[in-house]
Structures are given as C-alpha cells and as structure tokens.
Amino acid sequence: MIPLSWYLILAAALMGIGLYGVITRKNLVGALIGLELMLNSVNINLLAFWRYLHYAQPEMDGLVFVALAFVVAAAETAVGLALIISAYRSRKTVDVNEMNLLKG
C-alpha cells in the first residue's frame, strides 16, 4: 500500500518545480506552464487527503474541490493566455523582464 506521505511529497516536489518555473522563466508562457504544475500539485493533495482521510459517505468535499479547481484552472489559463497574446501584440515581446511599467 502506498503511504500518504508519498503523495504529499510528490505534490510538494511538483509545487516546488512549478514555483521555480514561475519565478525564473523569462518567457511569460513558461511562467504559465509552471503555474499549471502548481495547480496540479494542489489537486494531487486534495485527492490524496480525500482518499486517505475523508472518503466516507457523504463527504464529497475533496472531489468537489478538485472539480472546482479544474474549472478555476481552465479559466485562469484561458484568461492568462489571452492576456499574453494581447501583451505580445502591443509590445512584440513576452519577456517578463521588459514588462516593468509599474516600476516605482
């Protein structure tokens, strides 16, 4: 039987990898890819906790959370990519480092 800790460590690793991508990528699309990985690690955690601790009827919380996380992830990606394309069109670049209009 697979221990719960394995899932959690896998999710933590995936989260770390995703976060690394978000922080270090110069390309906005690359940052978005990292974000997807982070979201997936959250889903792994949710399902793992559901399976190990809260599976009994009628507790559907874990599953419902995952379902909603899917929706949010899909929405976030769609809007994110639309923003990237829009930014690209106006600035001809997707380099994060050049998008510093908010510099104080």
């Binding site: 699309v29 990519l81 997707v94």
Partner: peptide
Amino acid sequence: AILIIFAVMLSRSS
C-alpha cells in the same frame, strides 16, 4: 496544454 501550444505559436518570438 493545447491552448498553451497555441499561445506559443501565436507569440512568434517565444
């Protein structure tokens, strides 16, 4: 993922 691939293709520099 397909959406991301589209975005990559649409932003030529990336």
